[in-house]
């Protein structure tokens, strides 16, 4: 097996090199087969030309997938029913799956990727989304690989006039996860929301690059990250609100709430706001620190050990995101996974 090193999650524009946040280099195995299309889905081959959508991980990843021979696959949907893709990786995999919401349609998607504890490899999942006029796409993702599986989870999406794209992601377990998400708000009054819940511990890493590009008037974006870090975990969050000239009346927000649970962690946050339009409103807010002592005291005074209290806070970080899932079935499923993780511990 051969592998290729590529740079993904590039910060545009870049900043000081010494901070090591301008991009991340990942090593991806070549020749990986598709792993997601054996799920009994109704699929058809997607024309690559129709799905040239910029993604959060960036063009180097898309070029790599093309060279790898990974073909985009269009997944059929029948309206409001949940399209559910659950995959346990057993080897290297690379997939591009595409979803389209026609005018006025609502499409609900759930992806859940995991792997056995003994599986070692790298999986690349690129999800491409198109929402036509007045359509809505709700994507819920759980990324919870085993210890030996590295995952690159990449999203590119486009929203036409009045369309809405809502993405909820829960990242836990595994070792190294890279995540990208880029939404182009192309039509007037298009909107997007990102809600990310993450827990990284025991040397796990998560590198993220999220971009909302406001290309039309009165578009809205809201990127939210909540999470907890402990035991040598590392997380980098790049979030970009990009107001392009002509997007008058647009509104973009980013917020981050990170709990830092010991002093072995590295938490990097890079929230960009880029603006070439006058009449817009952009904002970013971040709160980063340890759990409030009074909360921990309250819990421990009621017989909860400090370790258990920390677990409760971690779980709350994940559930804060999961509770934003609009589709009831997907929400119940994701909350169940989170409950299962903490029930075992």
């Amino acid at each position: 097996m051969t592998a290729e090193k590529i740079k993904i999650n590039s910060l545009v524009p870049p900043t000081w090199n010494r901070l090591k946040v301008n991009d991340i280099t990942v090593e991806l195995p070549t020749g990986s087969a598709a792993g997601m299309t054996d799920q009994g889905l109704k699929t058809s081959e997607a024309k690559p030309a129709d799905w040239q959508i910029d993604t959060g991980c960036g063009t180097e990843l898309s070029t790599f997938l093309e060279k790898n021979g990974t073909k985009p696959v269009l997944v059929a949907n029948d309206g409001d029913n949940l399209v559910s893709i659950k995959k346990t990786y057993t080897e290297n995999a690379a997939d591009i799956i595409c979803f389209e919401a026609k005018e006025g349609q609502t499409v609900n998607i759930l992806t859940d990727v995991t792997s056995d504890e003994n599986t070692e490899g790298t999986a690349v999942l690129q999800v491409l989304l198109k929402a036509e006029k007045g359509a809505k796409i709700n994507l819920a993702q759980v990324v919870r690989p085993g210890k030996g599986m590295k995952v690159v989870n990449d999203i590119g999406s486009q929203a036409a006039e009045g369309a809405q794209i809502n993405i909820v992601q829960v990242f836990m377990d595994g070792s190294d996860i890279s995540a990208g998400c880029r939404t182009a708000l192309k039509g007037e009054e298009a909107a997007t929301e990102n809600h990310v819940g993450l827990v990284r511990t025991n040397g796990q890493t998560l590198d993220m690059n999220y971009v909302a590009k406001h290309l039309a008037k009165t578009t809205k974006a809201d990127i939210n990250v909540t999470g907890a870090l402990s035991k040598n975990a590392q997380k980098t969050f790049r979030g970009t609100i990009d107001f392009v000239k002509g997007c008058t009346g647009s509104d973009g927000k980013e917020s981050e709430n990170m709990l830092l649970l010991d002093d072995t962690i590295v938490n990097k946050t890079v929230p960009l706001i880029l603006c070439t339009e006058e009449t817009v409103a952009g904002s970013h807010g971040a709160t980063i620190g340890k759990p409030a002592e009074d909360i921990l005291f309250y819990m421990t005074s009621r017989g909860i050990t400090r370790e258990r209290a920390v677990e409760i806070l971690e779980r709350a970080s994940l559930e804060a995101a999961a509770n934003k899932i609009e589709n009831a079935e997907a929400k119940e499923y994701v909350l169940g996974i989170i409950a299962g993780k903490y029930a075992d511990e």
Binding site: L19, D262, T269, I273, G285, I288
Partner: peptide, 16 residues
Amino acid sequence: PVMDIRTDDADVGHEA
């Protein structure tokens, strides 16, 4: 902006 935080015992806020 970039925030690089390497201890739990910190209180960092940022708004733009």
